[in-house]
């Protein structure tokens, strides 16, 4: 079998189609053991729920060197009930850790934005830990494109 450019194009399109489907959290974890270990350390083994935590990241990043992301957690942010921390991970980077935001009731809101490096198209994952020990998780796929003629 010889591979033509047309077939490679078709293969690329098929790959893209598959990755457009949503990402179940369990699948994300199974695919990245190092990240899984970091999450377990952060959550103390609690099973993450879904919801409450929103991770905002571009669907397509123009350059993997500077990708804006934000996290936001639905919480009253009182002394009794607040978000303690949100950890952000990038499963496809040389090391999955990106940042951990630590909040206090003085934060007022559990929201933070920053800019991150992504080595390739991959899932960005956020995990939130609340003051009652419960944890929430969200993931978002970011496609990292290679530039023009200079790459």
């Amino acid at each position: 079998m010889t591979v033509t450019r047309r077939q490679i194009l078709a293969f690329g399109a098929a790959t893209a189609a598959v990755t457009l489907v949503g990402i179940p959290v369990s699948k994300v974890l199974a695919a990245a053991p190092e990240m899984d270990a970091k999450i377990k350390e952060f959550t103390g083994g609690a099973t993450p729920g879904e919801g409450k935590l929103t991770l905002t990241a571009p669907e397509i990043a123009e350059n993997g060197n500077t990708v804006p992301i934000s996290v936001s957690v639905d919480s009253p942010m009182t002394a009794e009930d607040h978000v303690v921390a949100v950890m952000v991970l990038a499963e496809g980077n040389p090391s999955p850790g990106v940042a951990t935001f630590h909040f206090t009731p003085l934060s007022g809101k559990a929201e933070a934005s920053t800019r991150i490096r992504l080595a390739k198209t991959q899932n960005v994952v956020a995990v939130a830990r609340m003051s009652d020990g419960s944890v929430y998780m969200a993931a978002s796929e970011v496609k990292v494109t290679i530039g023009g003629c200079g790459g």
Binding site: A90, G97, V98, A99, F101, H102, T114, R115, I116
Partner: peptide, 17 residues
Amino acid sequence: FSCDMEPSISANPYLEF
């Protein structure tokens, strides 16, 4: 607020909170 940063944070770090 505080933040632990890893090498995956972009050059010229930006933080909004």
